[in-house]
Design a binder for these strands. Structure first.
Length: 267
DNA sequence: CGAGTTTGACCTGCGC
DNA sequence: GCGCAGGTCAAACTCG
């Protein structure tokens, strides 16, 4: 599994957005794309690949001041809740952006959409979560090249662990949606701890709001069984650990990563 | 005083 | 070409 991780699953390598300029510059001066039509298509898909995370969150705001800086807010049509725009502040040139918006249908659901790839190393905790979202993006990009279906459910274990995970290629902007708003039966059975009972989060795990598509994730030893439980230590936030346990649990997160590796989709 | 947030203006893509 | 909506910028403001 280690070799496969090094070979083909480093998010930053699979997703060339790591080498892309910030979104604004990319928009003004898109890539030349002289390597052929197929490469150009893949690059365009990678640039626009997004991971959207839906989580129950009853608090007005999410504790995510670790490395995100808000740069704008807009009220979207059809949704009374404003959409907030954040960008990564770890590195000035980091192109990663995040959009946070509450669901118009259910105000307790928070929809966070990550776009881009970190151009700098991430803390282990953030890298761990980044690997998961990156894996989802990898699935998206891999599947989009061979299928034209819209909005199909993943046949991967992630669908079981992360909830109803869907891939959407609508509007020529491929997006992976990790729906964490509905507890999975497996988790309900296995997690009887006080944490599991409170699946509806009061705050998102720091890592969820800290990392997406980390190019350095593949080089960090977070794939072992001790990776996720260490999140709280690295982040210095108690809730990081508790939320990680709520959403995954050490055993399941490890199992998930290993199983996804076994199907050759991600490491 | 520096870092982060707010908010109105501006830019850009897209549909008609 | 025009208007709308989403996304970004940047000056003003807030906070520790």
């Amino acid at each position: 599994s280690d070799s496969s991780a090094d070979d083909d699953a480093a998010p930053g390598h699979q997703l060339p957005a790591a080498a892309c300029p910030p979104a604004t510059k990319a928009r003004k001066s898109p890539g030349a794309g002289v390597d052929g039509a197929d490469d150009e298509v893949l690059q365009q898909q990678a640039k626009k690949a997004r991971v959207s995370v839906r989580v129950k969150c009853d608090t007005p705001t999410v504790r995510s001041r670790i490395q995100w800086r808000k740069y704008g807010q807009k009220i979207s049509k059809g949704n009374p809740c404003p959409r907030a725009y954040y960008r990564c502040t770890v590195a000035p040139s980091c192109p990663v952006r995040k959009q946070v918006q509450r669901c118009a249908d259910d105000m307790s659901i928070l929809i966070t959409t990550y776009e881009g790839t970190h151009s700098h190393p991430l803390p282990p905790a953030a890298a761990a979560m980044a690997s998961t979202t990156s894996a989802a993006a990898s699935m998206l990009l891999a599947g989009s090249s061979s299928s034209s279906s819209h909005g199909h459910h993943l046949p991967f274990p992630s669908a079981g662990l992360l909830g109803p995970t869907t891939i959407s290629t609508i509007a020529s902007c491929p997006t992976v949606t990790l729906d964490l708003t509905a507890p999975h039966s497996l988790m309900q059975q296995q997690y009887q701890s006080p944490y599991a009972a409170g699946y509806e989060s009061k705050a998102l795990p720091a890592a969820w709001s800290s990392g997406y598509l980390a190019p350095y994730a593949g080089g960090l030893p977070y794939y072992g069984k001790s990776s996720l439980p260490a999140m709280g230590q690295h982040f210095g936030l108690g809730m990081a650990t508790t939320r990680a346990e709520q959403l995954y649990g050490a055993a399941h997160s490890s199992s998930y990563l290993q199983r996804t590796s076994s199907v050759g989709v991600v490491h």
